[in-house]
Design a protein around this nucleic acid. Structure first.
Lengths: 225, 225
DNA sequence: CTGACTTTGTGCGTCGGTTCACAAAAGGAT
DNA sequence: ATCCTTTTGTGAACCGACGCACAAAGTCAG
């Protein structure tokens, strides 16, 4: 016999990792509705994916389901949270407190997932000193000091494009290895540093491409979230 | 002989479409620096991709390069813009004028790519009537009327999660088939409607996963933008 | 005109991800 | 205890994407 429900091999596919937060969100919704167990089919529908894919994704974490029954909602929430590292507290700094930075600072979705906005930093003296979302905005000169003092491990860049690379270099220099970049530039970072980017205008451009196809051509290419 | 530089077959891979905006951004930067032609290698570096991939992507649009020379920057900007549908004017409505909606309304990246924010819509009477980014915020009751009147073809949802599906249904009902969704819910839409979603907290969760791996495990999985 | 050099466009092997479909496992009923 | 139903976990086929590596196509010097 083989040992039951091991944490499994260290090597979860990227595509799977990207979907785990989706499952987690769906599961939270179910937990709120006091649903105790859920089948892969139902959870798949709630998350908007194929059920076979969902089962394969979950199987990468371990064997947490019961055949003939489904998955225990509470337990699965815990397992996914643990795998994603959400059982620990993550201190996040937001650099660039413009419209976007402000929106991010107030975004509830962070806090509810174990992310704590621990610092707001900007270069504009007009903004420095303001209180936003209960935090005092600090000056960019304090960048390194603040990151160290607050134990920040993830930095969100919401600066103008022109400033992003310099700020990036500085945070990397003090040991930050996870960056979420909203500035429309390709950041260059050393190996070992993770950068994820969100470009709002790219999403619109992709939509425009498909929209144009619908209007013009005889064939319609359609999505799936 | 075969006819030179045709628009090529109607069937550009999704992965390619998703990268075209990236190339476009890099090319715009080069055009500003008055660079007339660029090799696939240089453009690939600027866009942060492999040069073979870039060439294959561009080959899907047609044969717009010159062997031994490279690509004409201006011409390529035009071809990509045309393919993405950016040569036409797109009227965008933003529904939900909270922090995020406000940030989006003020985001310069839209306007510079042929997207025009044509309407801001909210349900909160406190906000309705305000002027934001030079636009008057209109009431959600006017949703259908505004969309028709302004010729809106793309809707950005920046509402609370609870309101997203209802607003989605209403805009779909008046013929909108392209939606950019920032609300953390899985929207259900009929076939033929394109939904793209941006979930800020998902990106952070993916970062947290990798960050945790770095700290704990013996193997380091690293990114690539 | 010829030959050396540069850079594109793509054929092809490879890899990761998706989906189908089914055997194995669990629960419940009789 | 045995059978029937439900649902998981996964083997295997398929599909698209990636990147190497090279022939084809063009430039430029002499």
């Amino acid at each position: 016999m083989k040992s039951p429900s091991q944490p499994r091999d260290r090597g979860i596919p990227d595509a799977t990792v990207a979907r785990l937060p989706l499952y987690l969100r769906a599961l939270h919704g179910m937990a709120e509705k006091a649903i105790a167990t859920v089948s892969s089919e139902d959870l798949a529908v709630a998350a908007g994916v194929n059920s076979a894919k969902l089962r394969k994704d979950l199987s990468h974490l371990g064997s947490y389901g019961t055949r003939g029954v489904g998955y225990d909602v509470e337990y699965l929430v815990y397992q996914i949270s643990r795998e994603l590292g959400l059982t620990q507290d993550w201190a996040v700094a937001i650099v660039g407190v413009g419209n976007l930075g402000r929106a991010l600072a107030n975004y509830g979705g962070f806090v509810s997932r174990g992310f704590r906005v621990a610092a707001l930093i900007d270069a504009d003296p007009e903004v420095v000193g303001d209180d936003i979302a209960g935090l005092n905005v600090e000056h960019i000169d304090e960048l390194e000091a603040v990151i160290k003092r607050r134990g920040v491990s993830i930095v969100v860049l919401a600066t103008p494009a022109a400033a992003a690379q310099e700020v990036c270099d500085r945070v990397v220099a003090v040991g930050v290895t996870s960056i979420l970049n909203f500035a429309p530039v390709v950041l260059s970072v050393p190996d070992g540093v993770d950068v994820r980017k969100v470009d709002l205008s790219i999403e619109l451009q992709i939509l425009a491409f498909h929209e144009q196809r619908k209007a013009g051509g005889p064939l319609m290419a359609v999505d799936s979230q």
